[in-house]
């Protein structure tokens, strides 16, 4: 009897080696810094609708996210002397906590401000590029259960994190057609909804971290072409409040996101920061 058990254990061990190797290889590939970006033909191309997903936490995280977006659309970036044109993203998905009315209101206010800004500009220029312009685009606000409430006990947080993870998964995959719609000659009738986001923009809240984890899982399994179509570039912006040490979200995401942006020079990976942390100036 003991002989059979030993034989079974050895076989399992030997089989698990290549499997583990495969999984590690796949994970490395998924998290590779050099993974390609999709090819695009100009900004605001109606055949290539763009999609930005933003996660709003609560309180300070929301305030920082709105502050950096407001700065980006209102004041020109020092390098290009141009400010962000909100129409560059044909659709915006805002993800907020299910009980977080304040963040939902902030998102609405920002959308109204940013879209009026660009339409004014168009009026001033006196020309609307009818062929390429899709107007102010569209947005929606989606609610997810919180990943972790403040002061929540660590013993119950795995359950709330899982609940949040499933909600994020369903937001990301909702209506996604498994092939690249823009490359098709005839768009099939059953492509309701829209593609995966091009960019997932998050900062500190736990919900943002879970959203990134969900997108990494989708790419890991190449669900509906998430990996082969190079979807969902992830962008993490560390809180402005973190000067010397990354936050918990930052320490988890620093090895996982495509861009990990810190807002103080000391946190740059070249200095004391971990992983992919990079300092590209302050955004708020």
């Amino acid at each position: 009897m003991a002989y059979y058990i030993r034989a079974l254990l050895i076989t399992t061990f030997l089989l698990s080696l290549p499997l583990t190797y495969l999984l590690v290889w796949r994970l490395k590939y998924t998290l590779s810094l050099t993974r390609p970006k999709p090819i695009r033909h100009g900004r605001r191309n109606p055949r290539e609708p763009t999609h930005l997903l933003i996660v709003l936490g609560s309180g300070g995280h929301t305030a920082e996210m709105i502050a950096m977006l407001e700065r980006a659309v209102n004041s020109p970036s020092p390098q290009s002397a141009q400010s962000l044109d909100w129409r560059d993203f044909a659709h915006r998905t805002w993800v907020v906590g299910e009980d977080d009315e304040l963040s939902a209101t902030k998102a609405k206010e920002f959308e109204e401000m940013a879209t009026s800004l660009t339409s004014q500009e168009t009026l001033m220029r006196g020309k609307v590029r009818a062929y390429t312009d899709h107007g102010p685009g569209s947005y929606e606000i989606k609610k997810v259960p919180r990943a972790r409430a403040i002061y929540q006990s660590p013993w119950t947080s795995p359950f709330s994190v899982l609940r949040c993870f499933l909600a994020c998964w369903s937001i990301l995959t909702h209506g996604v057609y498994p092939e690249d719609v823009s490359a098709m000659q005839h768009i099939p009738a059953d492509t309701k909804g829209r593609d995966y986001p091009d960019i997932i923009l998050v900062n500190g809240p736990a919900t943002g971290t879970v959203m990134v984890l969900a997108s990494v899982a989708l790419r890991f399994f190449d669900y509906k072409g998430a990996a082969t179509r190079f979807r969902m570039r992830t962008l993490y912006v560390e809180s402005w409040a973190r000067v010397k040490r990354l936050s918990l979200s930052g320490r988890i995401l620093a090895h996982m996101v495509d861009r990990c942006l810190v807002q103080w020079p000391l946190l740059d990976a070249k200095k004391t920061g971990p992983g992919r942390a990079e300092f590209q100036g302050c955004f708020v």
């Binding site: 970006k37 970036s77 390098q79 290009s80 962000l84 560059d88 100036g281 302050c282 708020v284």
Partner: peptide, 25 residues
Amino acid sequence: EWPPVNSGTHKGLKGILDEEMGYLD
């Protein structure tokens, strides 16, 4: 005033988003 006037020649959030979207213009 924040942001500081002499905050250097950084790309800004727009620059980073453009890079990630692959816009080359």
